[in-house]
């Protein structure tokens, strides 16, 4: 039995040690905002925060998460001021098309802006290139991030 602190609450889960966090979130806890896209940390759809840092949940075995480490997912990222700002910017800039990657994009953007509150193009390129958007909403993602970082 493992205890995971997710979005501020402790969850007891009885899962195999090697089970990636992604499937614990989605198939055990029913938190489906975090998406599966590739399973090998190539697309970023599964991005969540572990102690504030963006991580790919599809390759993170739950046993590698230390007791007390805080996991934040798309379902709760809007509870922080920055998370809410980013979600609002996404709507304001009409970023979303199919929307499947956007949970991961937003989680990466919030982590980027936490580290670089005034992120410009170079930081955006570096911080966001792990997230694939097949609808290619990149122009608007960049615009939305800049509206927060350069406000």
């Amino acid at each position: 039995m493992l205890t995971l602190n997710i979005n501020g609450a402790d969850h007891q889960v009885d899962v195999p040690d090697d089970m990636p966090l992604l499937w614990v979130l989605r198939d055990v806890l029913g938190m489906t905002g975090t998406k599966y896209g590739c399973g090998i940390a190539q697309c970023g759809a599964c991005t969540v925060h572990l102690d504030g840092t963006a991580v790919r949940a599809c390759v993170l075995p739950v046993s590698n998460i230390a007791q007390g480490q805080k996991i934040v997912t798309i379902e709760a990222v809007g509870k922080s001021d920055l998370g809410k700002k980013v979600q609002d910017a996404w709507l304001e800039h009409e970023v979303v098309q199919c929307g499947y990657c956007q949970s991961g994009q937003i989680m990466s953007a919030v982590a980027l802006l936490t580290q670089h509150p005034d992120a410009g193009d170079a930081e955006i390129d570096a911080g966001m290139s792990g997230n694939v958007c097949r609808c290619c909403t990149y122009t608007r993602i960049r615009g939305a991030i800049k509206s927060v970082s350069q406000a």
Binding site: E75, W90, L91, V96, G99, Q102
Partner: peptide, 14 residues
């Protein structure tokens, strides 16, 4: 359809 797609609540088949 976009609000649910920025907060994780939109449901796709998966």
């Amino acid at each position: 359809d976009t609000p649910g797609k920025v907060n994780g609540s939109a449901k796709f088949t998966i």
